[in-house]
């Protein structure tokens, strides 16, 4: 499926699920997402990661709703528990099968997103590993001066933002030097198809989900 359409589908369904409580719909979505992820050969290790990371938060919500809310609504507690996993697995359907580059190319070519957004975000995305190093470096440099820079220290953010400003300048210059102009049309090296079949699948999936969400109850 076309990356942009996949993104919109995931977003629309997630938004609906976040506002309408329906346990069965959540379970069906998780099941379908799991099958989709298996078809795309997502490793078992990654799947276990998806299950364990939100577990604490999911249990916390369950306990707060079932044991400590006035209604003690078990179904609702399970709904919220499974809702977190619906988000995680739906998100994984997008992020484990599509790269950020494919998505931004698709948004640019198929959805006519201005190139400055598509490439600006992508440029920042690609220096992601460096940002982690930079934050660690600042932290270590602070410790050498007996300053513990933590998440509440303005100085940590200040130094990181100074680096970000210089990187933004550098990346911008580099892109200009490589011929990037935000007002000019770009030629396409790697075209991303948006076919009638994609649209049909998108509409079909979206429409067929509505009765499940609104009329199917346990």
């Amino acid at each position: 499926m076309n990356p942009s359409l996949k993104l919109f589908l995931v977003l629309i369904i997630s938004l609906e699920v976040s506002l309408k409580a329906n346990l069965l719909a959540n379970l069906i979505l998780i099941f379908i997402s799991l099958i989709y992820l298996f078809i795309h050969r997502v490793s078992l290790k990654e799947l276990l990661g998806l299950i364990f990371v939100p577990l604490i938060a999911a249990i916390a919500i369950f306990i707060a709703i079932y044991y400590y809310s006035p209604a003690h609504d078990l179904i609702y507690a399970w709904t919220l528990f499974s809702r977190l996993y619906t988000f995680v697995f739906l998100g994984a359907c997008l992020t484990k099968t599509t790269t950020a580059t494919q998505l931004s190319r698709s948004l640019e070519q198929n959805m006519h997103l201005p190139t400055k957004f598509a490439y600006g975000t992508l440029a920042a995305f690609n220096v992601l590993p460096k940002i982690g190093q930079e934050v660690k470096r600042i932290h270590a440099a602070g410790q050498m001066r007996a300053m513990n820079l933590s998440f509440y220290s303005p100085r940590l953010y200040f130094k990181a933002i100074l680096s970000a400003i210089s990187w933004a300048d550098g990346l911008n210059d580099a892109m200009q030097a490589h011929g990037f102009r935000e007002t000019q049309a770009r030629s396409i090296i790697d075209p991303i198809a948006l076919t009638k079949k994609d649209w049909l699948l998108f509409i079909l999936l979206l429409i067929s989900f509505q009765p499940i969400l609104f009329f199917l109850y346990i």
């Binding site: 604490i56 600006g120 982690g132 934050v135 998440f151 940590l156 953010y157 970000a164 933004a168 911008n172």
Partner: peptide, 29 residues
Amino acid sequence: TLHVKDIILITLIAIIFGFIYVASDNIYN
């Protein structure tokens, strides 16, 4: 108006905050 440099900077700032938050994610847990 917003230029590509602004967009890069805005995204970088957002990532930095995300990183610092994730680095201290154990607070949340």
